[in-house]
Every structure is written in C-alpha cells, then in structure tokens.
Amino acid sequence: MKDYMGYSIEGRTTAISTILNQYSSGITLMKQDSNGEFYPLKAKTTILPNGSKSYILTPCNQ
C-alpha cells in the first residue's frame, strides 16, 4: 500500500485507515484538532476515469 499511496505520513495514514475500514477491524484512527478534540479519519475511495482507484483521507466530521 505504501508504494501506491506514498511514503509520507499522510500516505501511510491513508493506507492504514483504508485497510482498517475495508476489513471492519473495529479499530479507528483518530486525529486531534487544535481544540484538543479527537475525530475519526476515514479514507474515501473514488474511481478515476481510467479505472484506477484514488484514496483521499477525510475527517469524519466534515
């Protein structure tokens, strides 16, 4: 997954979030905002016109 999504922290977080959500692991990645509150992260999957998939990490509160 890292080769596909990248080696950055965001790429790795997106890969982990995708796998956890895809297999209903019961584990959720959380991120803390500037107010100290935590919110879950979820990777959104979109299919591009050429048929490949694109993954975008989005907070669930948006």
Rank of each mutant, 00 (worst) to 15 (best):
G26V: 06
E37S: 10
S24K: 14
M30P: 01
C60S: 13
I19H: 05
N35F: 11
M30E: 14
E10N: 08
N50H: 10
L57D: 00
T58E: 15
A15D: 03
M30T: 07
I9E: 12
G6F: 08
T45P: 00
D3F: 04
N21S: 14
S17G: 04
F38V: 04
K53D: 04
R12I: 11
T18K: 02
K53H: 08
I27A: 11
S54K: 12
G51S: 06
Y4T: 09
T28K: 09
L29I: 15
K44I: 15
I27H: 11
I9W: 09
E37K: 14
N21T: 12
A15K: 01
T28W: 05
M1R: 05
S8P: 01
L57M: 05
S52K: 15
Y7C: 03
T28A: 09
T28N: 13
K31E: 12
C60F: 05
S54W: 04
A43E: 00
N35S: 14
S54P: 00
L48R: 11
S24G: 14
G26Y: 05
K31S: 11
M5E: 05
T14Y: 00
I47W: 04
N61E: 12
P59C: 09
K31I: 15
G36Y: 02
K31C: 10
I19M: 10
G6H: 06
E10H: 07
S54V: 01
M30R: 11
Y23P: 00
R12Q: 09
Y4R: 10
T18N: 04
Y23G: 03
K42L: 10
A43P: 00
S52C: 09
C60G: 10
K44E: 14
T13Y: 05
Y55P: 00
S54T: 03
T13I: 09
T28Q: 13
N21D: 14
P49S: 05
K2P: 04
S34I: 12
T58L: 13
D3K: 08
L57W: 00
N50I: 03
Y4S: 07
N50R: 04
T14V: 01
S24D: 15
Y4L: 13
Y23M: 07
T18R: 02
S17E: 03
C60Y: 06
Y39Q: 03
E37C: 09
G51R: 02
S8T: 12
L41C: 07
L48Q: 08
N21C: 08
S24W: 06
Y7F: 13
N35P: 01
N21F: 06
T28D: 10
S54F: 05
R12M: 13
T14M: 01
D33I: 05
T14S: 02
N35Q: 12
K42C: 10
T18S: 06
Y23T: 12
I56Y: 08
I27Y: 15
S54L: 10
R12W: 09
T14E: 01
I27S: 10
A43I: 01
F38W: 15
T28F: 06
I56C: 08
T18A: 06
P49R: 02
S17I: 02
I9H: 11
I56G: 07
P59I: 06
I56W: 06
G11T: 01
Y55N: 00
